[in-house]
Lab assay of single mutants.
Amino acid sequence: MDVFMKGLSKAKEGVVAAAEKTKQGVAEAAGKTKEGVLYVGSKTKEGVVHGVATVAEKTKEQVTNVGGAVVTGVTAVAQKTVEGAGSIAAATGFVKKDQLGKNEEGAPQEGILEDMPVDPDNEAYEMPSEEGYQDYEPEA
């Protein structure tokens, strides 16, 4: 019985440690998101679009440190934060509304985080759909 109880105690310690790591990862992701939003706020009209992409990228980098179902929630929060940063930029006159959601080359930025393969159960990952990809044929 002692062996059984000791095993359960060790398992509990492992769960607590994993929860603490997840909590730490979420806190880091939130900190990076805040950094990115402050970065966007300090940019001029020309830099705002690039700044919004930076927020998304920093958040995406930190999301990889967070495991399990938390990833889905962090990704949703990050996307809403990026959308909010863009709205703030438009409201303050840093950028025109028609410039939001495009990178410096004018290509749409939507789907940055949505296409990231995420499995809350950590069982399997699927690649994003290939609808947006084109076949590449090298020139002879």
Rank of each mutant, 00 (worst) to 15 (best):
Tyr39Ile: 11
Glu20Asn: 03
Gly7Cys: 11
Lys97Trp: 09
Phe94Asp: 06
Val15Asp: 00
Gly68Phe: 03
Val66Cys: 15
Glu110Met: 06
Gln134Cys: 12
Glu20Gln: 03
Pro128Met: 11
Glu28Asp: 03
Thr81His: 12
Gln134Trp: 02
Pro120Arg: 10
Glu110Ser: 11
Ile88Tyr: 02
Glu61His: 10
Ala11His: 00
Glu83Ser: 05
Val95Asn: 11
Lys12His: 09
Glu104Asn: 01
Pro120Gly: 10
Lys102Ile: 06
Thr59Cys: 05
Thr44Arg: 02
Ile112Glu: 10
Lys96Ser: 09
Ala85Val: 12
Asp115Trp: 11
Glu13Asp: 01
Gly41Leu: 02
Lys102Asn: 14
Met116Leu: 09
Thr75Val: 10
Ser129Pro: 09
Lys10Val: 14
Lys96Asp: 06
Leu8Trp: 07
Ala11Glu: 00
Thr59Met: 09
Asn122Lys: 13
Glu28Phe: 05
Glu13Cys: 13
Ser87Asn: 06
Gly31Phe: 07
Thr75Asn: 05
Gly132Gln: 15
Gly67Glu: 06
Lys97Ser: 03
Gln134Ala: 12
Val26Trp: 11
Thr22Val: 13
Ala78Thr: 12
Gln134His: 06
Val16Ile: 11
Asp98His: 06
Gln109Ala: 01
Lys6Cys: 15
Gly36Glu: 11
His50Phe: 06
Val48Trp: 09
Ala90Pro: 01
Met127Pro: 09
His50Trp: 11
Gly47Ile: 05
Lys80Ile: 11
Asn122Gln: 05
Lys34Trp: 13
Tyr125Gln: 13
Gln134Asn: 12
Val77Lys: 03
Lys60Ala: 15
Ala124Cys: 14
Gln99Gly: 15
Val15Pro: 00
Glu137Thr: 09
Leu113Trp: 14
Glu13Ala: 05
Asp2Glu: 01
Tyr125His: 06
Gly7Gln: 04
Gly7Pro: 02
Val118Cys: 13
Lys32Phe: 13
Asp119Val: 05
Lys32Leu: 13
Phe4Trp: 10
Val48Ser: 01
Phe94Arg: 01
Val48Lys: 01
Glu104Gly: 14
Lys102Glu: 13
Ala29Tyr: 12
Pro117Asp: 04
Ala27Asp: 03
Glu123Thr: 13
Val74His: 02
Lys102Asp: 15
Lys96Asn: 15
Tyr125Thr: 10
Val15Ser: 00
Gly73Lys: 03
Gly7Trp: 14
Glu105Arg: 09
Val77Asp: 02
Val48Tyr: 09
Val26Ser: 01
Glu35Pro: 01
Asp115Phe: 11
Val77Ser: 02
Lys45Asp: 00
Glu105Lys: 01
Gly93Leu: 02
Gly93Gln: 02
Ala91Lys: 08
Ile88Gln: 07
Glu28Leu: 10
Val26Thr: 01
Met5Phe: 09
Met1Arg: 00
Lys12Gln: 08
Asp115Lys: 09
Val77Ile: 08
Glu13Leu: 01
Lys34Asn: 01
Ala85Cys: 10
Leu8His: 00
Asp2Met: 11
Thr44Val: 03
Lys10Leu: 14
Glu104Ala: 06
Gly41Pro: 00
Val66Tyr: 07
Glu123Tyr: 08
Val74Gln: 04
Val66Thr: 05
Asp98Ile: 07
Thr22Ala: 15
Lys96Trp: 12
Val48Met: 09
Thr33Gln: 01
Asn122Arg: 13
Ala53Thr: 08
Asn65Gly: 11
Thr75Asp: 07
Ile112Asn: 14
Gln109Tyr: 09
Lys10Cys: 06
Ala124Tyr: 14
Gly51Glu: 02
